[in-house]
Amino acid sequence: MKKLLAEFFGTYWLVFGGCGSALFAAGYVTPTGVHLGIGFLGVALAFGLTVLTMAYAVGHISGGHFNPAVSFGLWASGRFSAKDLLPYIVAQCVGAIAAAGSLFYIWSGKTGNVIDNTSAGAFASNGFGKFSPDGYSMISCFTAEFLLTMFFLLVILGATDKFANGKFAGIAIGLALTLIHLISIPITNTSVNPARSLSQALFTQGEPLGQVWLFWVAPILGAIVGGLIYKNLLQKTDND
């Protein structure tokens, strides 16, 4: 139960901090017209910092997945038990949805804040085609999510390998997620995390919810391929 609670709180913090920065701070303009928003760079850093901080806070309890795709990738690499997949994914999704609910409650407290589910990035949702921030096709978005999640798993597995310096694993993983967002916010609004995508889409509804399948399939497939690559091609053994 402690492991599942750690995954709940870790995923909650990821969605609350990352999506919250996009909703409240990315494009902030003061009443006098001064632009103080944090932009893409700030949002990318926010996502990375959520993972970095929770990796050190609760990673020693649950392994610090906070992401169904990561759980699948660790399973594919042989580092995670299949029997724990479903409980972890449920805890992650519940944590993400709870965070999205908290964000919606705060966000709706400002007059005029209404979710426009006909526009890209509404309520920090992910999407492709018309719902891609810069209009990228479904194939382009699928490829980006697949490749970025695959490399995310390579970083996670390498940084947490028994031969690596584990003290710095959280930093490497957090910076990797920051880099991933710097690359792909204009493409898909960045997912690489099915729970994060589902939580925002549930509140956005409309086509963003209809497109959420891609942000489950592509990251999970990418994570599994990343896990298999690391296990079979890169993982060092005691005999190497």
Rank of each mutant, 00 (worst) to 15 (best):
T188Q: 05
G39D: 00
S137M: 11
L41S: 14
M150F: 13
V29T: 12
N126A: 04
P219H: 00
V51G: 11
L4D: 05
F66G: 06
Q235C: 07
S62A: 08
A91F: 00
G73D: 01
Y88L: 11
L157C: 00
S77G: 14
V192T: 08
V51R: 11
L41M: 15
A144L: 13
G210I: 06
T204C: 09
N189R: 00
T111H: 07
K110W: 10
T32Y: 04
L74V: 10
L154T: 05
E207I: 15
F163K: 00
L209Y: 06
A25P: 03
D238I: 13
G42Q: 08
A122M: 05
W107G: 05
G226E: 03
I187E: 07
I97Y: 03
G158V: 00
S71T: 10
A195W: 15
A46R: 01
L198V: 13
T160H: 05
H65F: 13
L228I: 13
T111R: 08
A120E: 12
V217P: 11
V51H: 06
G48W: 09
P87R: 06
A96F: 15
L45I: 12
V212W: 04
F123R: 05
T53Q: 15
H181A: 01
N113P: 02
I38N: 12
S81L: 15
L202D: 01
F151H: 11
A100P: 07
L202N: 02
V192D: 13
T53Y: 06
N126K: 02
S184R: 00
G64K: 08
N232P: 07
F47E: 14
G121I: 02
T53V: 12
R196E: 13
Q205P: 08
L36Y: 05
L221Y: 08
